Amino acid sequence: MANGSRQAAWEFFGTELKRRREEAGLTQVDLGHRVFVSGGYIGQFEQAIRRPQLDVAQRIDDLLQTGGFFERLWRKLIKEERFAEYFAHAAELERLATEICEYAPAVLPGLPQTAEYARAIYLASNPLAADEYIEEMVRLRMDRALLLKDATRPVYWAVLHETVLRVPVGGPAAMALQLDHIAAVVRDRKALVQVLPFSVGAHPQMGKMMTLMEFEDAPPTVYTEGVLSGNLLDDPAVVKRTRRITICSGPPRCRRRRPRP
């Protein structure tokens, strides 16, 4: 679905949500409390700022007795088909974030990847896939990577375990291009990249890929990913605890927001 069509779907969802909420005599806070999100989240859904998760759409249907209207709308119009379902919502939030901090224990995060690196990762994960499928996945990955080139890009900070830089993904030539790209991104001040060396030993995030996202007018979220699964955490207490025990609580200069035009 094109960006314009997707935005129109969000706006339609929000308009219908507001209309049906008001018909039920509920405020945003009332509705949010009853479907286990904040009133601010409901406001962001209604303004098409943020896309609701499927389970929230289902709870709204149950509460407003809409006969599954919002679930069907989510599935047909709003669901992001370009990404795996477990990552789709995180991908949307990525575009809204003002700050992104990622910790990678073994594989480079998607945003700073080159096409050669991404292709090697997809081939390793899908050894029998057709070339057309692999190239489509690489194209989508490169579309995501454009976020770091955007004038309104988020403050981006990546903490890479030394393993990420030592494994020659795609072979020596592809890995050399990837390392050159990381250096260029840092040199152009589009990102801060730090390396956690082997010598540090045990640390709180061993083996756990993590992305912390912060927003202008919404609570921060944490996204973690496993094998064909992802977990998006937005409970304020959980996010606060996660930040406190992880390396992404980091240097103060990385916590300042980049001014937006």
Rank of each mutant, 00 (worst) to 15 (best):
P168D: 12
L148F: 03
P197K: 10
A115W: 00
V227M: 08
N126Q: 14
R244L: 13
D188R: 11
D234C: 06
V155G: 06
V195M: 02
K208P: 00
G226F: 10
A202R: 13
E225L: 06
L196S: 08
A118D: 03
A176C: 05
L148R: 03
P112C: 03
I247A: 10
L123C: 14
R141C: 03
G110R: 06
Q113W: 00
T224F: 07
I182W: 01
L233T: 14
K208C: 13
V169R: 00
H161F: 02
R144D: 10
P172G: 09
E162V: 05
S229M: 07
L108A: 07
E136C: 04
A184G: 07
S125Y: 15
T114F: 02
Q194Y: 03
V227N: 09
D180K: 13
P109T: 12
R166G: 07
H203K: 07
D143W: 13
T152K: 05
T242K: 12
H161W: 04
D143M: 11
E214I: 00
L146F: 00
A202F: 00
A237W: 00
L196R: 10
A184Q: 13
G110K: 05
T114K: 03
R189C: 03
R243D: 02
T224M: 13
D234Q: 14
A151V: 11
P172R: 07
Q205A: 14
A202K: 10
L111E: 04
I182H: 04
L177A: 15
I245V: 15
E135W: 09
V238P: 03
P197A: 06
R189F: 12
P154R: 04
A124N: 14
G230P: 01
V164C: 09
A130W: 14
G207H: 08
E214T: 07
T152W: 00
R119P: 08
V159I: 12
V186F: 04
N126Y: 15
A124D: 15
L147P: 05
E135P: 03
F198N: 08
E116L: 02
R241T: 09
M210I: 14
L212T: 04
M213W: 11
R244A: 15
L179P: 07
L146V: 08
A120W: 01
N231K: 12
V222I: 10
K208H: 11
I134T: 06
A237P: 01
P204E: 05
P172M: 06
Q205G: 12
A202Y: 00
R144W: 13
C248V: 11
P109D: 13
V107P: 03
T224D: 06
P220S: 14
